[in-house]
Design a protein around this nucleic acid. Structure first.
Ligand SMILES: [Zn+2]
Ligand SMILES: [Zn+2]
Ligand SMILES: [Zn+2]
Ligand SMILES: [Zn+2]
Lengths: 152, 152
DNA sequence: TCGACTATGAGAATGATTATCAGTGAGGAG
DNA sequence: CTCCTCACTGATAATCATTCTCATAGTCGA
């Protein structure tokens, strides 16, 4: 896999947005990429404890920067933990995320054909620069199997 | 307009979800519907002060219930005020919201043709019961005019 | 290499949300 | 219609994610 490639890309994007590249930011981005699912700032901070003590403040700031640079995305679809910000790593180009409602596993979903919809919304509403925030939710095969097994 | 109709529908949905209908819940739902834009629990609480002092706790709980019943929707597209939950009133059937990034004005956008996309995602991923959370963001005509006027 | 300007992080502060729990009211059974 | 049960309400206190502060350390262009 391209472990180094997407990290380099992420750091390049930080630079392109006028932000410096620091060891802490690299580590936060790596931990975010390696996370099993949408992860919060505090969980990331805890995950980073072993190797190095990175301050919570830095984690919060870095997540905001990464989101600004398009390297991280703040998941909106979580119905539980409504007031907790969770992020996923975003590599490559435009895509969206499918989140399991039960175990919170995340899959990237490419090729949303929504560019034309954005243009259509612009036409109908008069708004400019219309874009979209889109998440998919569902039940992953594993959780679906468990649920059907538990059915009474 | 159908002021009474959508309130009655909202209360019916509460009942359908096993929740009682109370004067407080009616007032919260009305205030939410009459709000100019996405509104937070505390702003709703303040807006309700004049007529009647409704406890903040009730406002929070009612918003959660309304969201559960599909009568309220928690906007996710707000980049500012990241850690503040804002809700909009949802009447009728499936639709989405277009939010101005500057003034936070909200427009309902109907007819997203995403049912087929949901099915397609199910096919490609094996997930079951796939649905979507979708918000549009953009700049409303008024804010676009101000921005171009300020351009140096 | 050097300097200006940005990033870091421990601690305290902020502030939205949630827990508690006694009192109140909604709504179904009879 | 009345009564009983169980859900709802709300003042208060507690929780806890996020932000502020500011002195120190590091980044990166020149
Ligand atoms: Zn799952
Ligand atoms: Zn898209
Ligand atoms: Zn606007
Ligand atoms: Zn839709």
């Amino acid at each position: 896999m391209d472990d180094r490639r997407d990290m380099a890309l992420a750091m390049d994007r930080l630079l392109a947005h006028g932000h410096a590249v620091t060891p802490q930011r690299r580590l936060v981005a790596q931990a975010l990429r390696d996370a099993a699912g949408p992860i919060s700032a505090q969980e990331l901070s805890a995950a980073l404890e072993p190797g190095r003590g990175i301050g919570q403040m830095t984690v919060y700031r870095t997540l905001a920067l990464l989101a600004d640079a398009g390297v991280a995305y703040q998941i909106a679809a979580t119905d539980a933990d409504r007031h907790l910000a969770r992020y996923v790593f975003c590599s490559g180009s435009h895509h969206h995320h499918l989140v399991c409602q039960t175990c919170h596993a995340v899959l990237e979903v490419g090729g949303c054909g929504m560019e034309s919809v954005d243009r259509d919304v612009e036409q109908r509403t008069g708004f400019a620069g219309v874009g979209h925030h889109l998440d998919f939710v569902g039940t992953c095969p594993a959780c679906a199997a468990v649920a059907s097994g538990e059915g009474h």
